[in-house]
Design a binder for these strands. Structure first.
Length: 121
DNA sequence: AAAGTGACTGACA
DNA sequence: GTGTCAGCCACTT
């Protein structure tokens, strides 16, 4: 892997700090129950990181990891699906959420967000 | 080393 | 309620 020709990702560095944060983030994401969602900010607080960092971790997941983890249960603040800007990926995320019983509005916002949001702990 | 970019957020229109 | 704009932080060029 290392790098994709379209310019994006897979840091070859893999610093110790990043690896530690990544482990924590992955642990939290893996713990999200089906049919529930959580936000980048929540994970960020829980892992003592920033939302951007969490987002980056998920953005740099390997194919196997993204397949193993329910990353689609992670949404932006207010239950908004921010990854819609990725086009196909965002669509897939919404599709999978709906398949789990999570309704998403036409504006890409999780319906009854307060009811389906999940807090780690 | 400086400038550009983005799975984000919070404030404002 | 939705749509934009401006900070943020870490990474890439």
């Amino acid at each position: 892997m290392r790098r994709l020709t379209d310019g994006r990702d897979l840091p070859g560095k893999t610093t110790a700090a990043s690896a530690r944060l990544k482990s924590k983030v992955l642990a939290v994401v893996a713990a999200i129950p089906p049919g529930r969602v959580t936000t980048y900010g929540t994970i960020a607080t829980f892992t003592h990181a920033t939302a951007r960092q969490v987002a980056r971790v998920l953005a740099t997941l390997s194919a196997e990891e993204s397949d193993r983890l329910p990353w689609f249960r992670v949404v932006a603040a207010n239950g908004l699906i921010s990854s819609t800007r990725l086009g196909a990926v965002g669509r897939a995320q919404i599709k999978r959420l709906r398949a789990e019983g999570v309704s998403v509005t036409a504006r890409h916002k999780v319906q009854d967000f307060d009811a389906v949001v999940w807090l780690p702990g």
